[in-house]
């Protein structure tokens, strides 16, 4: 008979990970959950309030407005960045010395710290001294992003497109380079048009990386904070107050910990659910 000894000491090996995860994820998250169901007063006095803050946030017009702005912003930049990124990747050279030049140029915006991007574009777009601002006004348009909501949106979107399209380009380019030459040769022999080559070879082969690109761009843009904060500060008025900017205003400006915590959790759930929907939709056909 073979005796089976039970040795529980192996648990000690996972202890460091458990501690680490507890401190950087579980405890902060549970603190937020804790705040979200309590009313906070000075001197660390708390009252249990149940789902009151959740109801308040979900019925608040301010939250609806921020959420709508956030959804529009994310929708617009996805609609611009994904097709533009794919188009640039298709136009990039496949081989030769220009490949590395293009790749480096593409990677540059990604290497710039986010608040620097905001500051750069702030100065770049100022109507009186900025190059872009002067140019647009010089062409006869009345443009001032610090005062006109439309101009503020235009500038924020342009900034995000400049900053992040490269990521889509690099991912799409990686997808394109993984296509063996035989596919293009077979398509030529089959008499496929360049649209067919794109539709039936390039696009399907890029599908996985594009799924990643859409997910990354969705999550990142949905959580965008630094760049609009530096560029417009959420203004003019509340025109570019996206969810995270609004959240910071509630949590740190007004110090309403309960509503802020409830909003954080709702925010988190929205991102989670939307990411899942995106992923499921884009991978729908993969299993068959």
């Amino acid at each position: 008979m073979i005796g089976k000894t039970t040795n529980q000491r192996a648990w000690f090996l996972v202890l460091p990970v458990v501690v680490l995860v507890a401190f950087n994820a579980l405890i902060p998250l549970m603190t937020v959950v804790n705040y979200s169901v309590q009313e906070t007063f000075g001197n660390n006095v708390f009252f249990f309030e149940g789902v009151k803050w959740f109801e308040q946030i979900l019925h608040s017009e301010r939250f609806h407005a921020s959420l709508l702005r956030q959804l529009s912003f994310t929708g617009i930049i996805l609609l611009i960045e994904i097709p533009l990124g794919v188009a640039i990747a298709l136009a990039m050279p496949k081989r030769g010395p220009w490949v590395s030049v293009c790749l480096v140029l593409m990677a540059l915006p990604l290497l710039i710290p986010w608040n620097v991007v905001g500051a750069m574009w702030n100065i770049f777009a100022l109507p009186d001294i900025g190059l872009l601002g002067r140019m647009i006004n010089g062409m006869g348009f009345d443009y001032n992003f610090t005062q006109q909501p439309l101009a503020a949106w235009f500038t924020t979107i342009l900034m995000d497109v400049w900053h992040w399209t490269s990521l889509v380009v690099l991912l799409a380019y990686a997808g394109l380079s993984s296509i063996p030459d035989a596919y293009y040769q077979a398509a030529r022999i089959d008499g496929a048009s360049s649209w067919s080559v794109f539709r039936y070879i390039q696009l399907p082969k890029m599908k996985r990386v594009l799924t990643i690109a859409v997910l990354l761009r969705f999550m990142d843009s949905f959580m965008i904070y630094t760049e609009p904060f530096v560029l417009t500060g959420g203004g003019p008025g509340n025109a570019t107050t996206f969810l995270s900017i609004d959240l910071v205003k509630i949590a740190l400006g007004q110090f309403d910990l309960g509503p802020a915590a409830a909003m954080s959790l709702i925010y988190f759930l929205i991102i989670l659910v939307l990411s899942w929907i995106f992923y499921t939709l884009m991978m729908r056909n993969e299993e068959q």
């Binding site: 063996p180 035989a182 596919y183 040769q185 077979a186 022999i189 039936y200 399907p204 082969k205």
Partner: peptide, 14 residues
């Protein structure tokens, strides 16, 4: 002409 390559080429989505 027709050519069959070393690695099978099919249009995956079709």
């Amino acid at each position: 002409i027709a050519q069959v390559f070393q690695f099978p080429v099919v249009y995956d989505t079709m």
